[in-house]
Amino acid sequence: MNKKGWLNYKKSISKSVETIKSSLSIMFSILLLVSLIDLFGKDYYSKIFSGNLITDSIIGALAGSVSFGIPVTSYIVGGELLKEGVSLIAITAFIMAWSTVGVAMLPLESKYLGRRFSIVRNLTNFVFSIIIAITTIATLRFFQ
């Protein structure tokens, strides 16, 4: 490997390390929180998530919108919640909204991409999270 190639490789490794490193605290915080909430909420999940396509996806999308971090964190959290009995439609809306709607990141997004764009994008993505969750589950059920 030549010097330039090695430098690119090094740069790529350090960028990846930085991304993972900066996500670890949020990722483990959320896992800690989920572990605790799971014990509290086990008996209530079936009441909150009734299996209704619309309400479950709205609740899931709302939860995803206020959460933040790299998408892989939402898969891990969603996977654990699924095991606890939360419906797949709610989880799908949750992981969709997690990375496409960013309430916590709105000020930063507005700064770089403009306020109007950021608000419109986040609102549209919230609706799309619900639509995609419903469509995905309907498709999976159709082929089962």
């Binding site: 960028k15 991304t19 790299i70 960013g102 990141m105 930063l108 997004e109 770089y112 991409l113 403009g114």
Partner: peptide, 16 residues
């Protein structure tokens, strides 16, 4: 392209 939003937004801001 990977990276958290706070890394991507400055890049996208430049592209915009």
């Amino acid at each position: 392209v990977s990276g958290p939003p706070y890394i991507l937004y400055p890049l996208l801001g430049d592209l915009k």
